[in-house]
Amino acid sequence: MNPGFIGIGHMGEPMAANLLRGGIALTVWNRTPGRCDALAALGATVAPSVDALFAQCDIAMLMLIDSAAIDAVLGRGTPAFARRVAGRTVVNLGTTSPAYSQALGREIAEAGGRYAEAPVSGSRVPAERGELVGMLAGDADTFDAIRPLLRPLCTRVFECGAVPGALRMKLAANHYLVGTVAVLAETVHAASCAGIDLALLRDVLDAGPMASAVSRTKLDKLVRGDFSPQAAIRDVATIAELVLAECERGGGDTPLIRRSAALFRRAAQSGHGDADMAAVIRAFARDES
């Protein structure tokens, strides 16, 4: 097994670091080369180009921001695509639409490669701790190759059948996350308007049956006004739109995610895109509907 990791960003850097700490020899590449320096210090081999990484690796793990970035890295639609993916397994760790992933998997197979989805649930802190939750879709042989690479990253990995089963599951999980944080922010906004002691409200909710790791973390951020990013508004707004599109494809009646997606979009458009998703509370101050 000779894996490569592409996409050394907010989530990719700690994930790649955990692979290295888990004793996995890793080749890395990023479009901004300086982001690989810390991984090189941990023992990673830094490929000089994306073509060099594909030439050296039989598995390419992609933690990229969106489908456009994936297409650019793979050279999709160009002669470079087949050269890069033929004979290799491409693993998509990020979040895209299920339809995009399914089409990409088909094209990789036609070019002589293999494809799997392995999106993860969790933000920066769980990524640093190796406590993400993984979802895996593909064929059984591909599962066997990928499972050892997910162990240093995830506490649990759930098999979700064929592509795009893992991304559909990831978006369903994000549906719940986006709605949870939106209603938590609304609760704090309403409580603040009513003059309620927010620190005391935090203690009450943290002690009650509704508390979770997400609610405790985001509620603390809301009370303290600390919006340093764990999962940034800009990324969450994009994922919320993917969730909404998948709901519309399925035909379900989903007014809450529609409203939540609008709030995250508003927060991003209001200049809070780099802040943590708890900063969706900024959207309520402008909400007149």
Rank of each mutant, 00 (worst) to 15 (best):
M1Y: 01
G4P: 02
F5K: 03
I6Q: 03
I8L: 15
M11A: 04
M11L: 14
G12H: 05
M15Q: 08
A16C: 06
N18P: 09
L19I: 08
L20W: 04
R21G: 08
G22C: 07
G23V: 04
N30F: 04
G34S: 15
D37T: 13
L42G: 11
G43R: 11
G43E: 11
A44F: 13
A44L: 12
P48H: 10
S49T: 13
L53H: 06
C57Q: 13
D58G: 07
M61I: 13
M61W: 08
M61N: 12
L64N: 12
I65P: 07
A69S: 15
I70P: 07
L74E: 10
G77T: 09
G77R: 09
A82I: 06
A82T: 14
A82M: 05
R83C: 10
R84V: 06
A86V: 00
G87H: 00
R88S: 00
V91W: 00
T95I: 05
T95F: 02
P98W: 03
A99P: 03
A103L: 08
R106P: 02
I108M: 00
G112M: 00
R114T: 11
A116Y: 04
E117Y: 05
V120Y: 06
S123H: 06
S123L: 05
S123D: 05
E128S: 10
E128V: 11
E131L: 14
L136Y: 06
D141R: 15
D141T: 14
L149C: 08
L153C: 09
C154S: 12
R156D: 15
F158H: 15
F158E: 11
E159L: 11
A162L: 09
V163K: 02
M169Y: 05
K170N: 03
K170G: 03
A173I: 12
A173D: 09
A173R: 10
N174L: 03
Y176R: 14
V181S: 09
A182R: 15
L184H: 10
E186Q: 15
V188C: 11
H189N: 14
A190C: 12
S192Q: 15
C193A: 15
G195M: 05
A199L: 07
L201D: 04
D203I: 05
L205P: 01
L205Q: 02
L205H: 02
L205F: 04
D206L: 04
M210D: 06
M210Q: 11
A211M: 02
R216L: 04
R216G: 00
L222C: 00
R224T: 13
G225W: 01
Q230V: 07
A231N: 12
R234D: 15
R234C: 09
D235H: 15
T238F: 13
A245R: 12
E248L: 14
G250K: 09
G252E: 14
D253Y: 13
I257C: 08
I257L: 13
R259I: 09
S260K: 09
S260V: 08
A261L: 07
A261R: 10
A267D: 01
Q269R: 08
Q269T: 06
S270G: 08
G271M: 00
G271P: 00
D274I: 02
D276R: 00
I281G: 03
A283R: 02
F284Q: 02
R286K: 12
